[in-house]
Simulated assay, not measured.
Amino acid sequence: MMKTKVIAHFLAWFPLGWLVYAIFTRQLGGDPQEKLLHELGGWSLIFFLLSLSMTPIKLLTKKAQWIKYRRMLGLYAAFYLFLHVVVYFSFYLLFDFAELFSEIVKRPYITVGMLAFLAVIPLVLTSTKKAQKSLGKNWKKIHQLAYWIVALGIVHFIWQSKSDLNEPLLYVLWGTVLVFVRFKYKKIQKKVDRNKVN
Rank of each mutant, 00 (worst) to 15 (best):
V85L: 04
E103R: 13
G74H: 02
M1Q: 13
A78D: 02
G113M: 00
K137H: 06
Y76T: 04
L169S: 07
W148I: 04
P108I: 05
T4H: 14
T25R: 09
A78Q: 07
I7N: 09
M72D: 07
E39T: 14
Y80W: 10
V181Q: 03
G17E: 08
D96M: 08
K68L: 15
L11Y: 01
K63L: 09
G17K: 07
P122Q: 11
V120Y: 11
W43R: 04
N166Y: 07
K63G: 09
K187D: 02
A116P: 00
Q160I: 13
M2F: 12
I142G: 03
F157W: 02
A12I: 05
A119E: 09
L170E: 08
I104Q: 04
T111K: 00
L165C: 02
P168H: 01
V120C: 10
L125K: 07
S163V: 10
E34P: 00
L169W: 13
T55N: 06
R26D: 15
D193P: 00
H143V: 10
V177N: 13
K106C: 00
T111Q: 07
E39C: 02
F97H: 01
V181P: 00
K3N: 11
G113K: 00
P15C: 12
K196G: 14
S134T: 12
R70V: 03
K68Q: 15
G74Q: 05
A78W: 04
M2K: 13
A151E: 03
E99I: 06
K58V: 10
N195M: 15
P168L: 01
P56V: 06
G136Y: 07
I46G: 02
Y88N: 00
K106A: 14
D193G: 01
R71S: 01
K190N: 00
A116E: 03
L45N: 04
W66E: 06
F79I: 07
W43T: 11
